[in-house]
């Protein structure tokens, strides 16, 4: 082990954190503002990936694919909100969990019918497809740096949106006191639709930018969804700042755990036991972390002010 390896792993963890943040940001907004548990958020991630793959196929350009797929996701989000989710706001969490569980089944099957069971790929342009030499002798894939950059840009954009704009003010008002915001003349229904559209675009964007390094697959959303939930819960429901910090935390810990946990275990366990326990423990690590944090801070690290 050396510091280059360590630094690269840290970047890898950071990159995973950015993807998690893109999902968690939308999830935590929808949670916080509409009090809606949306299991189907992972389906939006998947839809984004398939949209981008299709556009990339049609236009032959990665950049165009993203530029077309993002507005398509906003539209898809708004349509889904108006048809399926709107009626769920007044329901309890159980109804929401179940109905959105049904949505997962529906979207997975729909994707399979439309695109077929085989995966979809997005080829990268040549200028994004290699690796670049960073200081300290680190050789790092360009595209992963692009992902990190995109994640940071989105985080910055969200911060500006929430803290500097009128719609952001409404979002903040809506998340701390819905009735008050309504009384101030905010059209809550429109606000919710807009927020959901933003959340859908963010999740879809996450799916789009991860697809060039993995591929678009049916069911890809569920695996990451659970990690995103962990992020949201650790960060504190409704808190974008919490989601950002928790996403990086989870991304880095998960990646570091995968790389170095078996080496750490070697100090306390015999070699073959460490080899067996390492992968098991590293895949459980983030859940243990979550249980630990919630045990001491049942509302997560950054519970929003005025939380219910």
């Amino acid at each position: 082990m050396n510091y280059v390896l360590f630094a690269e792993q840290f970047l890898n963890g950071f990159q995973l954190g950015m993807i998690l943040f893109l999902l968690a940001a939308g999830l935590t907004l929808v949670f916080g503002i509409m009090d809606l548990v949306n299991l189907a958020h992972g389906s939006l991630y998947m839809l984004g990936a398939y949209f981008a793959a299709t556009f990339s196929h049609l236009t032959g350009s990665f950049v165009w694919a993203i530029l077309l797929a993002v507005p398509a996701m906003v539209a898809a989000g708004i349509i889904i909100e108006m048809i399926a989710l709107r009626t769920l706001y007044a329901r309890d969490h159980l109804d929401q969990v179940l109905a959105t569980f049904g949505l997962i089944l529906f979207f997975n099957e729909l994707t399979r019918i439309v695109w077929g069971p085989e995966g979809q790929v997005i080829p990268l342009p040549a200028y994004l497809d290699g690796s670049v030499a960073l200081p300290l002798g680190i050789d790092y894939p360009v595209y992963r740096l692009v992902i990190i950059g995109c994640g940071l840009a989105v985080a910055l954009g969200l911060w500006v949106l929430v803290s500097k704009t009128r719609i952001g003010m409404l979002i903040r008002a809506g998340s701390s006191n819905r009735e008050m915001a309504g009384a101030l003349g905010v059209n809550i229904a429109t606000l919710f639709t807009v927020v959901f559209g933003i959340g859908a675009a963010l999740a879809g964007f996450g799916g789009m930018i991860i697809t060039p390094i993995t591929q678009a697959e049916v069911g890809m959303g569920e695996i990451i969804l659970i990690q995103a939930f962990v992020v949201v819960v650790i960060g504190g429901i409704g808190s974008i700042k919490g989601a950002f910090i928790a996403a990086i935390l989870i991304g880095v810990i998960d990646t570091m755990g995968r790389s170095f946990l078996d080496l750490l275990l070697l100090f306390i366990l015999p070699a073959n036991a460490a080899e067996a326990a390492g992968p098991a423990l590293s895949s459980m690590l983030i859940f243990i972390l979550m249980a630990g944090i919630l045990f001491f801070r049942p509302q997560g690290l950054f519970p929003p002010k005025g939380a219910r």
Binding site: N2, V4, L5, E8, Q9, N12, G13, Q15, L16, D139, P141, R144, I213, T214, I223, T255, R258, S259, E275, G278, P279, S282, S283
Partner: peptide
């Protein structure tokens, strides 16, 4: 070197490839 990754959740091998390079 030997890395056994989480299945089927892990679809990103950045960490492993870094170790391969080393």
């Amino acid at each position: 070197g030997k890395d056994m990754t989480a299945w089927p959740t892990q679809k990103d091998w950045a960490a492993e490839f870094t170790k391969v390079k080393a």
